[in-house]
């Protein structure tokens, strides 16, 4: 069953342009200038129930706007969205009870009160039964290790502690669809890993559909088999992460450590030389030539070490974005 279905989604913003200063403000009051920004420009995709999909794009690509449309915050300019069979913008209670949007920079905790107060308020808002609330809360609290800060006012918490509590507040009602926008923002490496494992486990246990954006490719690599890549509001790629590598990076990275210095020209025929600082050489070799080339290297050159790697996901994605620009 499709959990999320998006057809031709467009979201254009009218952004007001104004110079700084009071005079400009008065001028702008009389004669307002707007510019249209195409944040999302005709995107379509489908996500099955229980899928964990990575949503990738550079800053301002339209990721967050798409997530906001999917969670019913924004009224789409055009196109159709169905999430769990609901139209998000109608914001029906039954829809809202089954989704959550977690944003790395959002604040739903009451600033002046301890996090536990927000949790209790959410318990009432989502009408979570007492026993279920207690069970979920206990599990989340021990998993994210926040027991001793539950009663500290939110304003006194560190960014990471706050993020963890935001996360708990957002998933207390066990949503079936989770939109995660930069969930690991501001967390240390250990916490990033814990949160990643939590997301994975949550996806498995609840068969929850998860759409995740992140700037840390590690997050995406660790969690998502499928990725959707967008830029300038348009869809660039939708498919398996492994296909992305195959299709957009039909080459391998060969790293050599030479025993003695040789002329660069001797290695020209092997592939594209990415860098050469003796004794390290990095060569990019087309996928189908990889066995020939490595045999040749071992035969002709005196090497101490030879490593063949898949290109970094980050590099592939950067290349896709750069191609899109030209």
């Amino acid at each position: 069953m499709d959990s999320i279905e998006v057809k031709g989604l467009k979201k254009y913003y009218k952004v007001q342009k104004k110079e700084a200063g009071l005079a400009a403000s008065i001028l702008s009051f009389v004669n307002r200038k707007y510019e249209e920004v195409k944040a999302v420009d005709g995107i379509s995709f489908k996500i099955d129930e229980g899928e964990l999909v990575g949503f990738i794009g550079p800053n301002g690509a339209g990721k967050t706007t798409t997530l906001k449309c999917l969670s019913g915050l924004l009224y789409p300019t055009a196109g159709e969205i169905k999430v769990l069979g609901y139209t998000p913008f109608s914001r029906k209670t039954n829809f809202l009870k089954q989704i959550a949007l977690v944003m790395g920079q959002r604040n739903q905790l009451w600033w002046d009160l301890p996090p536990i107060e927000t949790f209790i308020l959410n318990k009432e808002i989502y009408e979570i039964p007492d026993d279920k609330f207690k069970k979920t809360l206990d599990a989340l609290v021990s998993l994210l290790d926040v027991t001793d800060i539950l009663k500290t006012p939110v304003k006194k918490l560190s960014l990471g502690q706050r993020m963890k509590c935001e996360f708990i507040a957002s998933v207390l009602h066990s949503p079936r669809v989770l939109f995660l926008d930069e969930p690991t923002l501001g967390l240390d490496v250990v916490m990033q890993k814990t949160l990643r494992e939590f997301i994975k486990e949550y996806n498995k246990q609840y068969k929850a559909t998860i759409l995740l954006t992140s700037h840390y490719m590690r997050d995406v690599e660790a969690l998502c088999r499928r990725v959707i890549i967008i830029n300038h509001g348009k869809l660039l790629f939708d498919g398996k992460l492994s296909d992305l590598v195959k299709r957009h990076a039909p080459y391998r990275i060969v790293k050599l450590t030479l025993q003695k210095n040789i002329d660069e020209s001797l290695m020209r025929g092997l592939g594209e030389i990415k860098s050469f600082t003796y004794p390290q050489v990095v060569i990019s070799v087309p996928y189908r030539r990889i066995s020939d080339v490595s045999a040749k290297i071992l035969k002709d050159l005196a090497v101490q070490d030879l490593i063949i790697e898949e290109p970094e996901i980050e590099d592939i994605i950067r290349e896709i974005f750069e191609k899109g620009k030209s």
Partner: peptide, 11 residues
């Protein structure tokens, strides 16, 4: 943008 917090929850 704080309004989002309320729009996202059934309240």
């Amino acid at each position: 943008g704080n309004l989002s917090n309320f729009l996202l929850r059934p309240i």
